[in-house]
Amino acid sequence: MSLPPKTALSNAWLDIYSALHKFHLIATLGWQDVATRYRRSRIGAFWLTISMAIMIAVLGFVFGTLFNQPMSDFLPYLAVGLIIWGFIATVINEGCTGFVSAEGIILQVRMPLFIHIMRILWRNIIIMGHNLLILPILFLLLMKPVSLEALLVIPGVVILILNVAWMMLILAVVCARYRDMTQMIQNLMQVLFYLTPIIWSAALLPERAGTAMLDFNPFYHLISIVRAPLLGDAPTLTNWIYSSLMMLIGWVVALPFFGHYRKRVPYWL
C-alpha cells in the first residue's frame, strides 16, 4: 500500500482538480444543505443573521461593560470576530466528520473526496454571507466610517479559506480512521475560542505573556487578516507572513498526506 511520494501527490492533485471541475455539484449540495435547514421557516436562513446579531448584542453588552470598552469600538470588533470565528469553528468541526457523514455517497458514487470538503466549505461560506449582513447595519448605526483598507479583506478571506481547507482535509482523513479525534478537535476549538482575541482584545494582554499566547495561535493570525481591514486598520506584517506561510506549509503537508490515504478512506467508513 505504500505509494511513492510522487504518486501520492498526483493522486491528491487529481482528486482536488476534478473536485473543482464539479463545482456545480458542490454548489447544489451546499446550497441544499442550507435550504433544508430552514425549509419551512418564514424568514429562512435569515435566522442565522438574527441569532448572530442577538449573540453579538448580548456578548457586546456584557463584555463591553466588563472590560470597560467604548461600545462604538468594541461592538464592531466583537461582531467581526464572532462572525469569522463562527465560520472557522464550524468548518473545522464539520470537517472532522466530512467523510464520515458522507459515507452513503462515498460508498456508492465514485466522486472526488475533496467534493465533500468543498461542500462543507461552501455551505459555511453561504452562512457567513448571511452573517456578514450584520456588519453594514452595525457600522451604519454606529456611524463608523469604512476606509479603503477594507479592500484588504479580499486577500484576507482567500487566505483564510485556503488555510481552513487544508486543515479540514487532514482532519477529515484522520477522523474517519480515529473517531475519537472528532471529540478532541471539538473540545480544542471550544478552548481556542477563549484563547483567541475575539471577545477580548489583544491590547488587553500583558506585554510578554501576550505575544507568546498570540503568536503561536494560528487562528489569531487568520482572524486578524480579515478583521483588521474591516475595522479600518491594516493587518500587521506578522499576521500576513504567518498566515501565508501556514497556508503554504499546510498544503505541502496535506497534499501528500491526502494522496497517500485517499484510497483507504472508503474502507474506514
Partner: peptide, 9 residues
C-alpha cells in the same frame, strides 16, 4: 431531480 442528477454526475 436536480439534486439526484447532479449526484449522478
Amino acid at each position: 431531480i436536480r439534486l439526484r442528477s447532479a449526484m449522478m454526475g
